[in-house]
């Protein structure tokens, strides 16, 4: 009896000890961040290192050999540049559209004189809840090549010829940008709306006293206050733009006419997975990573994100 009591005591003591250890000021922070550290190491760092190693290899079943920089030498081919060009164009348009339009819309949605505010907010946000694939299939049908497709019928009403949307470089890019814009505008509005809540009323009051017009208030009060949000939204739009895959996949799967829908990630998928050339795919992935890194850095520097706040 006595014995078991002491054992129980011992047990609670050691349990207490562990809890105490975990709760101590020095250890607790690490305990709380450990899930993220572990997931970073296992899910990000390890695959990244593995990909870099693989980019110097030819990976075939049972025959993995180091082939030096051969994979990298092969990258500079016309298809890669076309993929890069497509992706860059896509990034350019999505960044412009997904920063400008949400700012304007969020200012409207934030305005006191707007009726049905919640209805508009909700309806602009709903597209973000759908899957790209599902929405993309609907888009594909709406923009079908036959004259009976929804959009071509609208064009017919105003006397225009039906368009083969999925077969021209320009219209193809338009479809991808349109799909991405439709889907992400609501989310970005949310970011900007949150940013707008932090703009101090006093600044607007002061501007009113100085006799500023609505446009001047937008330009000199609202915009500077939104700057951190703009930087954030632009950065993630750039990164997501370079990683884009689904928007192209839903329209053409993996082979678009004349590669008009080929993105860098699509190219990685095609070469690495479909054509079983993992080393080459990994090399493209490493190059893509460098591109994203450089572009993001340039953009952050350009916006002055590295300067210390005054």
């Amino acid at each position: 009896m006595e014995r078991s009591e002491t054992m129980a005591n011992k047990k609670t003591f050691s349990l207490k000890g562990i809890l105490h250890f975990l709760n101590s000021r020095k250890v607790a922070p690490y305990v709380f961040v450990s899930p993220f550290i572990v997931s970073f190491l296992v899910l990000y760092l390890y695959p990244m290192i593995q990909a870099i190693v693989m980019s110097f290899q030819q990976v075939l079943p049972g025959q993995t050999t180091f082939i030096g920089t051969h994979n990298y030498q092969r990258i500079l081919n016309p298809t890669f540049f076309q993929a890069l060009g497509n992706t860059a164009t896509y990034v350019f348009f999505t960044v412009i559209i997904l920063v400008m339009i949400p700012i304007v819309l969020s200012v409207f949605l934030n305005s006191k004189s707007l009726y049905f505010k919640n209805f508009f907010r909700a309806s602009l946000f709903i597209p973000a809840l759908t899957s790209v694939i599902v929405a993309g299939i609907i888009f594909r049908m709406m923009f079908g090549e036959s004259e009976n497709s929804f959009v071509n019928e609208l064009l017919g009403l105003v006397g225009m010829e039906p368009v083969q949307w999925r077969y021209g470089a320009g219209t193809g890019m338009f479809l991808m940008v349109l799909l991405a814009s439709w889907r992400w505008i609501g989310v970005n509005i949310l970011y900007f709306l949150a940013g707008l809540q932090n703009v101090s009323e006093e600044l607007y009051e002061a501007a009113d006293i100085d006799g500023a017009s609505a446009w001047q208030k937008f330009l000199f009060v609202t915009m500077p206050a939104l700057k951190p949000v703009i930087i954030f939204v632009a950065t993630i739009t750039i990164i997501n733009g370079f990683r884009m895959f689904e928007e192209s996949f839903v329209f053409w799967e993996n082979s678009s006419p004349g590669n008009i829908g080929l993105t860098i990630v699509g190219y990685i998928y095609r070469e690495g997975i479909q054509q079983n050339d993992m080393g080459f795919g990994a090399a493209i992935g490493v190059v893509l990573m460098l591109i994203i890194f450089v572009v993001s850095m340039l953009q952050l520097k350009f916006f002055g994100a590295f300067k210390k706040e005054d």
């Binding site: 077969y167 082979s255 006419p257 004349g258 095609r270 479909q274 054509q275």
Partner: peptide, 19 residues
Amino acid sequence: LPDVQSEIHTNVLNSAVRQ
């Protein structure tokens, strides 16, 4: 072969016959 097929499907027939 998969590379050739992919060229045929994306570029060759499209630019020589369709466009």
